[in-house]
């Protein structure tokens, strides 16, 4: 699903060379819940940007769902992001002048999905995070936890292959933060691939796999949390929200 092959991200700062990512090779399989942990400046954000197709490596290859992302241009990246990734940010990053529903609709708008279907999918995603009754509210009328739920709904709505959560609990009190993490865990149990980026070990521990980054290198990896067999099976159903779980139960016909 995700494969980074000897990836470098090197910034040229005048005379100095800054190696934000200094040779990372990493594989994350479908259905995993992995946490990338590191101090600030460790390169975890750059790592997330590359995994999130917001940035391309200066060296090395990045395959996402078998496609070589490192060769894509800006627009191809944008398109790819919209279809395969769902972002959850620390600051929720909802657009303040759009209603909750409109915020959740956004990824679908850029994929060119017709309005009726879009609203249906958005409402369903909001129901999933238990906040459909607030769909006409503005983000500012919601609490932090509720806003983060909306942003999770937005990340889910396009049925992405991977959900990328950048410090999802950073702005929340510990109880709400725990709720959000539990929700992410349950999403993972339903078959979603989730990557958490955090500096907080307490948060990282909720993931089945912990990848520690320091100075642009992987210094610790607890190893794959999903056995090989399931991964192979689920490749046949790339891109489904419910992924392997649905396939295992045989509820949806394509498997």
């Amino acid at each position: 699903m995700i494969r980074l092959e000897d990836v470098y991200k090197i910034y040229q700062m005048g005379e100095n060379e800054v190696r934000a990512i200094d040779g990372i090779t990493l594989e994350i399989r479908e259905n995993e819940m992995a946490a990338i942990i590191g101090q600030s400046g460790s390169g975890k954000s750059t790592c997330m940007n590359i995994i999130g197709c917001l940035d391309v490596p200066t060296q090395g290859k990045y395959f996402l769902n078998g496609q070589d992302v490192s060769l894509m241009n800006d627009d191809e990246l944008a398109d790819f992001r919209g279809k395969t990734l769902g972002f959850i940010f620390q600051q929720y990053n909802l657009i303040p002048k759009l209603s909750v529903l409109e915020n959740v609709e956004l990824p679908l708008i850029y994929q060119g999905i017709p309005e009726k279907e879009r609203i249906e999918l958005a409402v369903r995603a909001l129901e999933k995070v238990g906040i459909a009754d607030k769909k006409l509210n503005m983000p500012s009328q919601l609490s932090g936890g509720q806003q983060q739920r909306v942003s999770i709904a937005r990340a889910l709505v396009g049925n992405p292959s991977i959900i990328l959560a950048d410090e999802p609990t950073g702005a929340l009190d510990s109880r709400t933060g725990r709720e959000v993490l539990e929700f992410l865990q349950s999403l993972n149990e339903e078959g979603n691939t989730i990557i958490l980026i955090t500096h907080d070990m307490g948060v990282a521990e909720k993931a089945k796999r912990i990848i520690r980054i320091s100075d642009g290198k992987i210094v610790e990896d607890s190893g794959h949390s999903v056995p090989e067999q399931i991964e192979v099976k689920s490749y046949e159903r790339t891109g489904s929200i419910k992924g392997a779980a649905a396939a295992a139960f045989g509820r949806e016909g394509t498997a």
Binding site: A78, I95, L106, Y110
Partner: peptide, 13 residues
């Protein structure tokens, strides 16, 4: 920031 959000959600140039 809004532009960044939109781009992260798949908005093209």
């Amino acid at each position: 920031r809004e532009i960044g959000i939109r781009k992260s959600l798949g908005a093209k140039k």
